[in-house]
Design a protein around this nucleic acid. Sequence first.
DNA 1: TCAAACTTTTAGATGTGTTTAAATTGTTGA
DNA 2: TCAACAATTTAAACACATCTAAAAGTTTGA
Lengths: 343, 343
Amino acid sequence: MAQKVKLSTIAEELGLSTATVSLALRDSPLVADSTRERIKEKAIELGYIYNRRAASLRTSRSGIIGVVVHDIMNPFYAEILRAIESELDRSRQTFILSNHYDSVEKQRNFIETLLQLGGDGVIMSPAIGTPVNDIKLAEDNGMPAILIARQVAGADVPTFRGDDAYGIALATNHLISLGHRNIAMVGGTDQTSTGRERYKGYVDALKKAGIEVDPGLRIPGPRTKQGGFEAAVNFLSMPQKPTAAVCWNDLVAIGLMNGISRAGLTVGVDISVTGYDDLEEAAIATPALTTVYNGQADVGRSAARALLDKLNGSSAADGLHLVKPEMRIRQSTAPLKKVPANG
Amino acid sequence: MAQKVKLSTIAEELGLSTATVSLALRDSPLVADSTRERIKEKAIELGYIYNRRAASLRTSRSGIIGVVVHDIMNPFYAEILRAIESELDRSRQTFILSNHYDSVEKQRNFIETLLQLGGDGVIMSPAIGTPVNDIKLAEDNGMPAILIARQVAGADVPTFRGDDAYGIALATNHLISLGHRNIAMVGGTDQTSTGRERYKGYVDALKKAGIEVDPGLRIPGPRTKQGGFEAAVNFLSMPQKPTAAVCWNDLVAIGLMNGISRAGLTVGVDISVTGYDDLEEAAIATPALTTVYNGQADVGRSAARALLDKLNGSSAADGLHLVKPEMRIRQSTAPLKKVPANG
DNA sequence: TCAAACTTTTAGATGTGTTTAAATTGTTGA
DNA sequence: TCAACAATTTAAACACATCTAAAAGTTTGA
């Protein structure tokens, strides 16, 4: 590698000062057009590489934005990330990604690293049990935080997520309208704000329809295909014989459908299943999954915009912003089958 | 936010020089133990945040490693990334992730950004059509590159990928041994080194078994579930009536299986399908997918280690390192069905 | 022709941590 | 008591781009 090319290299070659070169490369109107051109040409000729860390030392803007979610392999987050990426790309921000796998410690490490790198802001789907202090850590050091998908009690920062109670109620009502009364809720945990909201949506819908709520119909579990797949055994051997399942998300629903098919029953005929999120694959699952779109793209885009707004001084609205979910009816749900006499 | 705490803040508070503080925080043996402790305590007390960009300006080591792949939403890459992440985490490197979606330009932008940030190295699954110069750009500026999953002609850097020809031959041979002779190859492109290798593996296996190769049995297409799903129509209406399909990867295979089920046929009975990669979901697909494990974890881990080795001066072996794939037989493949007389 | 008013360019301080050579302090042993 | 040596600490240069105040160069117009 040849000697490193820096501003002063260009300046010397052209007999100018580094001040002029710096201004020219950033298109300052202070520099004469002809000079600017000569400088830009020379920069390309020499293969000059802008040193952002030197620059950000002065400007205290690094162009780096951090994003932490539970698991980028989870398509729900992946869809949000894609929206964030395309929004940030547009304003030439680099984004640093990390999983926290619900480890508060891993998440804090990430925040600290980001602070060390001079991150301009952070978008996070907080790990279960995130203390407000970890959000404060970021904010107090001049790095604004935006929350997505989950809330943190006491953290007064912009938060974007789907209206879970409303969304799950949509799914539950859909099943009720098909005649189902014995409806299980499969997957997920009640330890997150999301979990409590979703359970509430399910319970409220049942109550409103005059159906008694049986806590035995709640099967918590991992929010993955594997989790849904494993829940099938449990689901099929429940004493209450549910005829339908409201699943925590599409992954769980697809896993559950697979498990049910393995047992020789047909989803969309014998048993109805709803998902949540409307991932790309919901539409091509077999049978095509009835689900609730949770506004991933919206959440990602809004979160990114809110952060960019904050960075540009216009104060984004703090507090909770709910995105309205939408029902997507497909083939995994069907009217309640009349139970044959030998049932 | 209070006045920013820096080395000199700590130094002043304790009546020491910044030199001592700097050395102490990095555990230099030059500093007396008692002094080091006082300094560390003070640093915590004041909420000192290490400024990596200032440091890296001197040291020219940023602790940042870049990773670019086609699409992190693709579980194949996601599994590799997970292995890379856990390996890099161990040596306290931050990693910056990006998709290139096979845009050479987006990929180059990423490399440039990484150079600006002073990235220590880059791991990439190169975009289709990546010119050697883009690899050189990184290397020439002191940022070593490691390739995964795909090769770039003329780039003499460590490259890790599965042995595609061998792996696809495994799958093809498996189908041949079950009596199939009319075997289609579904999904993917022949524009990448991987594509050519895989097609070669398929062709060679057929030839070796004395089966004539019919180019009409090659159905290229997107490497996604959607792609496989859409290929089903095409596949089922082929004049050559294939009885089995070797798919580009598990996603295509799962999509194809879904498409075939939709058409009322049963995979694993009427038609045999093999995948490639052995993603987590292959095992829980319905029917469980026969596939070839492509060593994602190995590839990720080896690539990360190779990079870390290079950064530590021990020169990692340049050139191609092949990981041996392994057959995983499940329920999506079955012996050739005798064709009924009315066929 | 020369002061006033621009337009360009630049000197030099700045941001923060690292590192080396040198200074300071402490200890040992003759 | 003092040279020699070891253990600590520090001054100051350095990494590279930014930015302000001031200097230098041009043009305008009376």
